[in-house]
Every structure is written in structure tokens, then in C-alpha cells.
Simulated assay, not measured.
Amino acid sequence: MAELELLPIPTRILTNKDDIVEAIVEFAGPYIGPEDIVCVAESVVAITQGEFTRPEDLKVSWQAKFLNRFIHPDGSMASVYGMQAAMDKEGEWKMMFAFLCGAVAKVFKKPGVFYQMARTASLTDDVTGTMPPFDKCIVYGPKQPHAVADAIMKATGAYGACVADVNDLKRAAILGHSRGLKPQQIAQILIDNPFGNDSQMTPIVVIKNYASVSKRKG
């Protein structure tokens, strides 16, 4: 009887000169079956889309310096450059307003409002937040993740595909997925972070036998 299996797929370093769909077909194609789900790390998708910048190319504002004082050192915008990069995408005053709303919400024991309102901020990976050589860059969130997932599914013949944001703190979110998938269920399957964006170079994970296992349990 088929069981669920997480299969990390090794690749070479993927850059903005690569097409993420073509890369997945090249490296993961032989391992993907019609009952499988193909998952790819959001930072790698963003890199192949050119969604990154270098800290030295940013002009840091006083708003970024101010807000950065309140960010946890382990946060996705630990440096002032990460904060400024998010502000350049989201808007400095929108970020300030989101921060104010978040501070008020915390008084009423409702965390996470800042990142809900400033979505770009939650998807920005600061310096060292992704794999070399892009650990010297700030990487934004991917563009059109649902469309990317649909394209992956069609190109590979998989049961489904998703673009995932997962870390080692047992936080997992599905940013984009092909039709018919349950994002919260997929996020729970990936909660232990099977991806390896550093020296492991395994930014693709195939969830084997998902369709048959899901049907059996459903």
C-alpha cells in the first residue's frame, strides 16, 4: 500500500537566468508521478524571476531605521536593509501605518497584524536568508505563485504543485497552488521543512503518493 513520502530533489544553483518550470522538469521530472505533488521553495522561485536586490543598491530611509528597531533579530527583516527593501515594494507610509495597527492589535493580544497588512514584508528574505550566492542579497516574494504552480503541474504531469514558504521554526505557508489542493493540509505535511536552500541545494520537494493516500484517508 502506497504511503506518503517526501522526496527532496537536488539541483545546481538556480539563478535569474533559469526558468523555474524548466528547472523542475530537468531535475525532478524522472521522480514525478501522476499521484504526486511538486513543491518548490518560494525564495528560489523569486530568484529565478529576478525578484532580489543588493543592500548596497538601497537608500535607507529614516522610516526603515525606525521600524527596524522593533524587529526581532531572527525576523525576516533583521537588518535595516531588509526593512528598506520591503518598504520599496510596499510603500514607506503603508508600512508605517501597518506597524501602528500591529502595535495597537498587540495590546489586545492579536499578533501578526503588521505582517498581514504589509504582505511584502512577511515574504522578504533578508541577507543570509537564502542559499549562496544569493545570501548576499535581499530576496522578495515570488510573483504570481498560483500561475507558477499551475505551470509546474501542467509541465510535469503531477497531481498538483505548490509554491511554499517554510522555515526551520515549524512555520509553513502555501503561497500558490494548483487547483483542487488544500493549502493548509499541504503546509502541515511540509511543517518540518524538508527543503534545503543552503549547501544541500534541494529547493524542490516531491510529495509522493499524495493522491492515493489522500483518497484513502478521505
Rank of each mutant, 00 (worst) to 15 (best):
Trp62Val: 10
Trp93Thr: 05
Ala78Trp: 13
Trp62Gly: 02
Trp93Pro: 00
Met95Tyr: 01
Ser79Gly: 12
Asp74Phe: 09
Phe66Ile: 00
Leu67Arg: 12
Pro73Asp: 11
Ala78Tyr: 12
Asp88Pro: 03
Asp88Lys: 00
Trp93Tyr: 08
Gly75Cys: 13
Phe70Ala: 12
Ile71Gln: 13
Lys65His: 14
Asp88Cys: 05
Met87Gly: 05
Gln84Glu: 15
Trp62His: 10
Gln63Ala: 14
Ser61Phe: 06
Lys94Asp: 07
Ser76Lys: 04
Tyr81Lys: 02
Asp74Arg: 10
Val60Gly: 12
Ala85Trp: 03
Gln63Glu: 14
Gly82Tyr: 07
Ser76Val: 04
Leu67Gln: 12
Ala64Asn: 06
Ser79Ala: 07
Glu90Arg: 01
Met77Arg: 13
Ile71Glu: 13
Lys65Gln: 13
Phe70Val: 07
Met95Phe: 04
Ser76Arg: 12
Met77Glu: 10
Gln63Ile: 14
Asp74Gln: 10
Asp88Thr: 00
Phe70Asp: 11
Asp88Trp: 01
His72Gly: 00
Met96Arg: 00
Val80Leu: 03
Ala64Gly: 08
Leu67Ala: 13
Lys65Cys: 12
Met83Gln: 14
Gly82Gln: 07
Gln63Ser: 08
Lys89Asn: 03
Met83Trp: 08
Gly82Ile: 09
Ile71Arg: 14
Ala86Gln: 01
Arg69His: 14
Gly82Arg: 06
Ala86Gly: 11
Phe70Met: 09
Met77Ser: 10
Phe70Pro: 12
Lys89Trp: 01
Pro73Ile: 00
Gly82Asn: 08
Asn68Trp: 05
Ser79Lys: 10
Lys94Ala: 05
Gln63Leu: 13
Trp62Met: 12
Ser61Val: 01
His72Ser: 08
Arg69Leu: 14
Val60Met: 10
Phe70Gln: 13
Gly75Arg: 07
Ser61Lys: 02
Leu67Val: 05
Asp74Asn: 09
Lys89Phe: 01
Met77Tyr: 05
Glu92Asn: 07
Glu92Ile: 01
Asn68Ala: 04
Ile71Pro: 00
Met87Ser: 02
Lys65Asn: 13
His72Asp: 14
Glu90Cys: 11
Lys94Phe: 09
